[in-house]
Design a binder for these strands. Sequence first.
DNA 1: ATGAAAGCGCTAACAT
DNA 2: ATGTTAGCGCTTTCAT
Lengths: 341, 341
Amino acid sequence: MSKAIIDDVAARAGVSIKTVSRVVNRERNVRPQTRARVEAAIAELNYRPRLSARSLAGNRSFMLGLIYGKPGAHYVLDIQEGILEICRPHGYELVIHPGEFRDGDLVNEVSELILDRRIDGVLLSPPISDHMEAIGLLVEAGIPLVRIAPTIDKTAHPFVETNDLEASFELAEVLIGLGHRRIGFITGHPDHRAVGLRFEGYRKALRAHGIAFQGELVTLGDNRFHAGEEGARQLLSLPSPPTAIFAANDEMAGGVIKTALAMGLRIPEQLSVVGFDDAPISRQVWPSISTIQQPIREMAKTATQILLEQLRAGEAEPHPSMHPARVILRESIAPPRTQTS
Amino acid sequence: MSKAIIDDVAARAGVSIKTVSRVVNRERNVRPQTRARVEAAIAELNYRPRLSARSLAGNRSFMLGLIYGKPGAHYVLDIQEGILEICRPHGYELVIHPGEFRDGDLVNEVSELILDRRIDGVLLSPPISDHMEAIGLLVEAGIPLVRIAPTIDKTAHPFVETNDLEASFELAEVLIGLGHRRIGFITGHPDHRAVGLRFEGYRKALRAHGIAFQGELVTLGDNRFHAGEEGARQLLSLPSPPTAIFAANDEMAGGVIKTALAMGLRIPEQLSVVGFDDAPISRQVWPSISTIQQPIREMAKTATQILLEQLRAGEAEPHPSMHPARVILRESIAPPRTQTS
DNA sequence: ATGAAAGCGCTAACAT
DNA sequence: ATGTTAGCGCTTTCAT
């Protein structure tokens, strides 16, 4: 029963409560000897500072906020755990906040988060990391924030990033290297800008290899499994169907696989498929999907470190940090069948 | 800029701060007229009580804790969102806490959660809802808790439950009804007791239909995709392989599908497969998996309601609530091939 | 039905 | 390097 409060510790260590406070807060100007005495007293009494008291007096909440969209459960959970791994040891709690990009309430909810909870700092994960209105609100309120994998306006605020475009370019090049020339693409949700960069990477790769871009080989998706199914149905019904399909994320690539199999195609012999994210589904379908792995957990950890540093230093210098993605090759790709068949 | 504090509201409404406090806390013994005046003042000033001040004075944190294992990202996220949906409107924040069942640290972390964060109440999701040591700690500390889908010791504490065994029985009966007699089973992780009930449901169904239980048709799994692959490989290599496989969860059923396809089997013609959970994977593989849907989000909501009620009433009556699961039939099942082939 | 006064346990500003 | 004194903004008694 740890009912000890700061006065108990002070009494036991024979110092004033201010000195105890100094030790707890790791301030300097405490003699090592004194510090040791206080730390001993803290240990003996199993003293834990009351968060509410610290908050009230110090005007900070020791809480970080995470505002996230819905880019897949595994993605969100990875981010959450990455953040927790860093912030917990520093005495910060995480308050999670699901928000829809298009939801008009998002802005209200953000201000509620600020006003009611007095969050000390905020992490924004995709696609909310590109939600400039929400960001503006936070900036106005003076709440430190770090954006995870933003794609626009990457000047004003600290962020951690990855290289969607380059990784996508590389994966497209793999297909081209195998001999594919008609490569379909299923785009992602327009609110998820990062996914748009993947499309650009694809186009750039085509260009780099002198392959003409063909609009008919592109279908509009929304990141969901179903869009992959639809897109595949559409692309594979073309008079001259693609020999490979690049889906902007794994969820949709999974949809492509399912539809292609249902249509009686053999993968990868008759159709190569690639995705993006290294989502669980990419490993779990048969054949497994070649994809791009993003170090999202690491990004979340770095973002949290940057945020905590900002909280400590009180400054908000843009502090970019790059976590490159990497290509993962699996069963879903092969050279195209020779045209003669 | 809502910098209004309780004194401002009191002044504006022409009452004492105690009365404002009464209105904010919905206490009675306030004349409707007075209440209206105070509420008007609150609205005009956009007053928001400081959580830290309320916590310090009232000795509660307005935070709920969720301790969860890792039974799949979608599952965890569903629970989180179910809880948030209920607790946010009541002014409670959610603090999430991933914990490994076998991790010795879990107990430490739980006490930290109690001591440091002064959590007002805790929700335990599977498999932690069966972690009696952690529960004991919470009870000892007098922290109200609600268990989500526990399987043991369902007497002492409030909980919400579902009917794993009965649903499993029902799904097994579907296979039997199709004519299957050799039905393989891949068990779940032993720490996840609920998954054990699914095995019992399977055995009970066999018994009910006069089918002898055969140990060789059972392999030990751990809820993960890979275990499904292994189990399928083992079962399908038997001299007389099963005509259907029941995996204790969808993740493993997905593994079965993948392995069976890789072995050249056609599903469902040559092998029927069923799972449990209605996880995304059950919809995303081809063919899609027949399974059981559990209303986990609803369970989480109900659990939160019970917890909040307890916090209000100050009592901890066991308050069971049943959320039945239901069978979902998809493409992965068919009658067995006739033995003559 | 309403109010006055006394903290809750800590940090901040200013001593010393 | 350490201590003193005020609060932080609310909820609790206990009056009235």
